[in-house]
């Protein structure tokens, strides 16, 4: 009796389904045709137009700055959170865990509405600072989850061993815990950076005048058909960046795991 081919076929179709639209997008970024229905010749013109679009680059720089600041804060907070969730197990951590998991389980729309209500109620003007706070909030959960996954494979006897060999509490953290968790922490940081760069929904709720991030800029570009091919070019560049980040993150995840 041979194994059913159904799962393999379905998997192939799923992969096609997930990637074909993006492939078309990349292809169309070099297509002279505006709507990409037919191939009308190779062109760099959309990339040239993108290069000249200052408002895109301004938005990109703002997103970059926000993502960096978000990553810094969320990595520290998320790593601490993961460590305390891993190390302790009481009523406090039950509450803590719920607060970490819920932002992942609730739709972004509600998080956006919640933060908008907060900033409106407190009369805080929306802008880069409120976007940063919002991004840190949902990135904490992702970082914590990634680091927690690493910690699950972590042998706590290593900490005992380090102390047994004469390391004080801080030396244990610095010489054993940090080097071993670093790949996980970096993977979490990378994820936080990507998510912050990409977020549209929550950002949309808490942005104000003068705080147009890259996704917000893309959203406004989508309203004018003139700039649609430029989005293809921009998307292709972003896809390349995401690919590099994902490959790097996969590498980080693989390092330090013993060859089996």
């Amino acid at each position: 009796m041979k194994r059913s081919r159904l799962p393999a076929t379905l998997t192939a179709l799923v992969l096609l389904f997930l990637n074909a639209p993006l492939a078309v997008l990349v292809l169309n970024s070099f297509n002279a045709s505006r709507f990409g229905g037919t191939w009308e010749g190779f062109t760099w013109q959309w990339y040239e137009r993108l290069w000249q679009a200052d408002e895109v680059w301004d938005a990109f720089l703002l997103s970059l700055r926000l993502a960096t600041a978000t990553t810094l804060a969320a990595t520290v907070l998320g790593t601490l959170a993961a460590w305390s969730l891993h190390r302790f197990n009481g009523r406090l951590q039950h509450v803590h865990r719920a607060l970490i998991v819920l932002p992942l389980a609730l739709p972004e729309l509600l998080m956006g509405m919640a933060l908008l209500s907060l900033f409106t109620a407190l009369h805080i003007p929306t802008g880069p600072l409120t976007i940063w706070a919002a991004h840190v909030t949902f990135c904490i959960s992702y970082v914590a989850m990634v680091v927690l996954g690493r910690l699950r494979d972590f042998d706590t006897h290593l900490l005992d061993a380090a102390r047994d060999l004469g390391a004080g509490p801080w030396q244990v953290a610095y010489r054993v815990l940090l080097p071993l968790l670093l790949p996980g922490i970096l993977a979490g940081a990378l994820l936080a950076f990507t998510l912050s760069m990409d977020d549209f929904v929550i950002t949309f709720f808490v942005s104000g005048p003068g705080s147009t991030t890259l996704p917000l800029r893309i959203a406004s570009m989508m309203k004018t058909s003139r700039s649609l091919p430029v989005i293809n070019a921009l998307s292709t560049l972003l896809l390349c960046a995401t690919f590099l980040a994902a490959a790097l993150s996969l590498r980080l995840g693989r390092r330090c795991t013993p060859p089996s």
Binding site: V201, P215, I218, M222, T242
Partner: peptide
């Protein structure tokens, strides 16, 4: 990779 790609771009790809 598609999962990490900008959400708007993914929807935009389908629109195209």
């Amino acid at each position: 990779l598609p999962f990490l790609t900008n959400f708007l771009i993914r929807v935009f790809a389908w629109k195209t």
